[in-house]
Structure formats: structure tokens, C-alpha cells
């Protein structure tokens, strides 16, 4: 197992007390696998990824649980050892490639910098590798692009450069935090295509963080659904989308307007909005918005197996799992 996260809890100080933003999140990621972490804003998906990267530097933050990467425990790892890992074995790309590059240096220089931070290699050799990487990422005229400043490139090119930088040291794990959210839909399709190709060409595993169920469906082998800092459901993407086990997953999928088939007169929507971390209910966090809420939801449900998935809901155990999802046929 490349990455095994167990009971990861991240608590940040808010208003003088420690509030758990992410609670008891567990999942595993195998070699050459793409795992999607989906959730709405405030679900804790970005915090989870930053905790794995060791990039949570809020004073007073507390991280507990276990993150094992290639058998090595990362929670509590010494800063120097973490630094040697970051960028070399675990790399990360971010949502907005415009603000994620330092504006005052050329893109090539920033990629060279990462290569030279981890390997003893000459400037010109590093640049040669940068240009080759940019070319591999489908950047036209990579030599010229390497000499440009971030603001001089289009959004798609910037994100390709960002991915080139992340892959520059052949990391075993790539964490992509909303990598296509700032991009146009036709460019998004290109970048997702690129990410899917990485495991073939580079043997990388990818942890894809997104709010977009469509992106997950088209990209990920397995999926983890977060709601209000807790795992709602996890399992193989195909099974999870065909027969979601958690009412939240089902409702989330239903509320997406379909692009094909008949148009619903009204979109099935979820009433209300997710609780803030400090005001999370003691029982199931989704209970106040759930159509199936009943007495036993007052106790926080553990993850239980339901079909091919694990679901944090009492319904499967009570013998009345959700029905399979109706999916309109797509016109080819």
C-alpha cells in the first residue's frame, strides 16, 4: 500500500478552542491508483491533503491519527525529513495556477529550482529536464514557455507547467487539489486526460481533490465522499455512482442538473446548508438535511460495508439500503 491514512483528525484553534476540521478520516491508496476526494466547500478535503503534505502551519493546530506513506509514519515527522519528501516523493498541484506560481520568476526557473532542491545536477541539465517535462505535458514550444513569466501564459499552459513541476522528481504520489476548477471546460478535459495518463507514463498514484462529481466519475478508480469533515462514503467509483449508499451522496448526485435525457421540472435539492465545524451535530452530521432522518441518527454512525462501499449511515445496517440510481441514457 502506497498511502494508508487512519483516523486522521486535524483540529485548528478557532475562537480560542480547538475545533476538529477533519475527523477520523481513513482511506488507502495503492500504486498507480487514482483516488478522488469529493466534498463541498468546508468539507475538509483541502485540509486533509495539506495534512498529508505536512503543510498545515497554523500555530496551535493538532494533527492526530496516522498517515503512512510507503510504510513510513508522516504524522509527527521531523521538518527536515518532511522537506526531503515533499516535492520529491509526494508532490502537489493547486487550484489556481495563476497564483500558485511566484509571479516574479519565469516558469522554467521555478521548475529548475525544484529539481535542484532534490538532486545534485547542473543548471543546464536541470533546464534540459524542465524543457523535456514541459514537452511531455503537451506544452507547445516548451523552450520558449520555460522562459516566460506565469502571467504571460494561458490558464491551461500554466496548469500544464504546474504538473510538469510536480512531476519533475518522479514522485510516487501526486496530490491534485482542485486542479481544473479555475479552467475552462475544454481545457479541463485536456488536463484530466493528462492526469489519467500519468499512471501509465510515470507510474504515479494520484489523490484528486475536487468538488465536481463529474470530474471524479471520469477520472478516479475509487472515491471518498467527505461531508462536514467526516467520511460519508467510500468505495469503487463505478459502484458508488451506480448505487450510492449514503443519502448525502445520493442527494448530491441528484442535485446536479443532467446534460442528457429529460429535463426535470425541478432539481432535487438538499435543503439548508452544511454545518460549520464548530456547530457539527453530535450524531450524523447530515441528519438535519437528510430525507431519511430518524431516531437512530442521533448517534454518530460508524463506517459499515454496504455493497462494494463503506458507508457512514445506519440505513444499510437497518436492512433498507438506498435504491440504485436512475441514470438517463446518454446520446453518443
Amino acid at each position: 500500500m502506497l498511502l494508508a491514512v487512519r483516523d486522521l483528525t486535524v483540529a485548528l484553534p478557532i475562537g480560542g478552542r480547538l475545533v476538529p476540521i477533519v475527523e477520523s478520516v481513513s482511506f488507502t491508496l495503492g500504486a498507480r491508483e487514482i483516488l478522488g476526494i469529493v466534498g463541498e466547500s468546508g468539507s475538509g478535503k483541502s485540509v486533509t491533503s495539506l495534512a498529508i503534505m505536512g503543510l498545515i502551519d497554523v500555530p496551535g493546530a493538532r494533527i492526530s491519527g496516522s498517515v503512512r506513506f510507503r510504510g513510513r509514519e508522516l504524522v509527527g515527522l521531523a521538518p527536515r525529513a518532511y522537506r526531503a519528501l515533499r516535492g520529491r516523493e509526494i508532490a502537489m498541484i493547486f487550484q489556481d495556477p495563476m497564483t500558485a506560481f511566484t509571479p516574479v520568476y519565469t516558469v522554467g526557473r521555478q521548475i529548475d529550482e525544484q529539481i535542484r532542491a532534490h538532486q545534485k545536477i547542473s543548471r543546464s541539465d536541470a533546464r534540459a529536464r524542465t524543457v523535456r517535462l514541459l514537452g511531455d505535458m503537451g506544452v507547445p514550444d516548451p523552450e520558449r514557455v520555460a522562459g516566460r513569466y506565469p502571467h504571460q501564459l494561458s490558464g491551461g499552459l500554466r496548469q500544464r507547467a504546474m504538473i510538469a513541476m510536480a512531476l519533475s522528481c518522479n514522485p510516487a504520489l501526486l496530490i491534485a487539489d482542485e486542479p481544473t476548477t479555475a479552467l475552462d471546460v475544454t481545457v479541463q478535459a485536456q488536463i484530466l486526460d493528462l492526469l489519467r495518463g500519468l499512471r501509465r507514463d510515470y507510474g504515479s498514484s494520484v489523490l484528486l481533490i475536487t468538488h465536481d462529481m463529474g470530474v471524479v466519475a471520469e477520472t478516479c478508480d475509487r472515491t471518498l465522499v467527505l461531508y462536514s469533515g467526516l467520511v460519508a462514503e467510500r468505495g469503487p467509483t463505478g459502484a458508488l455512482f451506480a448505487q450510492p449508499g449514503h443519502p448525502y451522496t445520493a442527494a448530491l448526485l441528484d442535485s446536479i442538473p443532467p446534460l442528457h435525457g429529460p429535463r426535470p421540472a425541478r432539481l432535487p435539492s438538499i435543503p439548508g446548508s452544511p454545518p460549520a465545524p464548530a456547530g457539527r451535530p453530535a450524531g450524523c452530521p447530515f441528519a438535519p438535511r437528510c430525507a431519511y432522518v430518524h431516531d437512530s441518527c442521533a448517534v454518530r454512525p460508524p463506517l459499515v460495508a454496504c455493497g462494494e462501499q463503506d458507508v457512514a449511515c445506519v440505513l444499510p445496517a437497518e436492512g433498507r439500503p438506498l435504491p440504485p440510481r436512475f441514470v438517463a441514457e446518454m446520446s453518443a
Partner: peptide, 25 residues
């Protein structure tokens, strides 16, 4: 047509995805 094909849909497809549109706007 390209715009529609590029929209990721919350459905797991059995056949492969169409090749994405090339280049930037």
C-alpha cells in the same frame, strides 16, 4: 459539440471518453 463532450458527467461510462479539444482559446 466539443463543449458538450467536454463536460464531465457524474456517470461512470463504459466506453472511452472522446478525445478532448486541442489547444487554448
Amino acid at each position: 459539440a466539443a463543449l458538450i463532450a467536454a463536460v464531465p458527467e457524474p456517470v461512470v461510462r463504459t466506453q472511452g471518453l472522446p478525445p478532448p479539444l486541442r489547444g487554448d482559446v
